[in-house]
Design a binder for these strands. Structure first.
Lengths: 218, 218
DNA sequence: TAAAAAATCACTTGTTCATGTGATTGCAGA
DNA sequence: TCTGCAATCACATGAACAAGTGATTTTTTA
């Protein structure tokens, strides 16, 4: 995570706690190659403040009165996509982390992080990384995992042919079309689908399709 | 990331490069409160090696001859769910990161990480965090984002009633059931669905269901 | 090698669906 | 106020589907 010699990273801070804002300001100013181009206690008139401070990296408190940090990130991400945002928060609860990520935050650290960690995180953020405390990262990984494993609780084993036909069902094909694509008779298609329904415990095409998608059977 | 005084973290290493294996071994042994209970150059007879070394944290190289690191993690995650695994790799390519996460890895760091970072990562892993280099974290965030933004390209505006009926379709209800649940006649259901099909440019229940799910219309 | 599972086809029956055409009511915006 | 849209209902028809029963062939596996 080294930094080429010439660059000065322009950092703006949004933080409603005045004391913390001041200490962040000082931390940034005290660090060589950082310059604090703005220290704001709220995200009102966000665009004006950004235009004024022209930052490379924004440190954004997630909980602020008025416009909250997540909405602010959304706006920044759309209007100033080149600006990278490092979220800062006291608690690492799932919902906020997720909302911040969706909104376009690059990194996510806790306020209790040490000065050294914060400085490191700013550099990482500037360099295109996504610094996050291990506890946050753990939660992010879990979100990823859940979204890709939610299902398969039941043990459904479809044969290859059945999967193939189910896939075509999901694509919206009719029995007739499936028969044509698989070079089998429509009666065979019917027969396979009967078996699929039995294995999935469903009684119609659309139920089978929903189950196939939700459980990633195909 | 402090560590209570009494604990000694038992670490096992799997790494096919003998030199790297040796240097990791030494790094761990040289660190107070770590003990290296195993240094293996492959994951053959994984369970025996694990039983033998009884580690709290496993450092696993992702690319190994024979059984690769990802398969090894899968096995560990199922058979020894309490063991936390820190993946180590040279390259941070998306597929491997994703596969490792799915397999159940806790952290993911690059081999070029400094000794201090590696030690820190082991402690974080032990403490339930998910240490990862910012570049890896960036990729993980992108995966999360993509999975929740894919759709809504076309501008489809269904009326409230249409959404309601589409939702019921997705739940696998028949026209008759929908009519009953909405207190309307089956003809009205038919009529609404006709309109839905027109708006979605589809011609069957299952196509409508797929589109509704993929584009998160409901 | 014998049994089980998968893939194929056939016939039937009642049900559900897709689509067309057309009509009424009520509400909101130009 | 007129227009258009949303929601409601009605009737009709042919196509598609669900489910039952039964059978043959091939492949897999115990």
């Amino acid at each position: 995570m080294s930094l080429s010699n010439e660059v000065t990273i322009r950092v703006a801070v949004f933080e409603d706690n005045e004391q913390l804002l001041e200490s962040l300001h000082q931390l940034i100013e005290a660090t060589i190659k950082f310059i604090c181009t703005g220290a704001f206690s709220n995200a009102q008139h966000l665009e004006k403040k950004i235009a004024q401070s022209n930052p490379d990296v924004v440190i954004m408190d997630i909980d602020m009165p008025g416009i909250n940090g997540i909405d602010a990130v959304s706006i920044l991400h759309i209007k100033y996509p080149h600006i990278r945002v490092l979220m800062q928060t006291v608690f690492d609860d799932n919902d906020k982390i997720f909302a911040a990520i969706r909104a376009g935050a690059s990194g996510y650290i806790l306020k209790k992080s040490s000065s050294a960690k914060i400085i490191e995180a700013i550099v990482d953020t500037y360099n295109g990384g996504a610094p996050m405390t291990p506890s946050v990262a753990e939660k992010v990984l879990n979100m990823l995992r859940y979204q890709n494993q939610n299902a398969q609780a039941e043990n459904i084993n479809l044969s290859e042919r059945e999967k193939e036909i189910l896939t075509l069902l999901v694509k919206g094909k009719s029995y007739k079309m499936i028969a044509a694509e698989c070079f089998i008779s429509i009666d065979t298609v019917n027969s396979h689908i009967k078996n699929i329904y039995e294995k999935l415990h469903v009684h119609s095409k659309s139920e089978a399709v929903v189950k196939a998608i939700n459980q990633k059977l195909i």
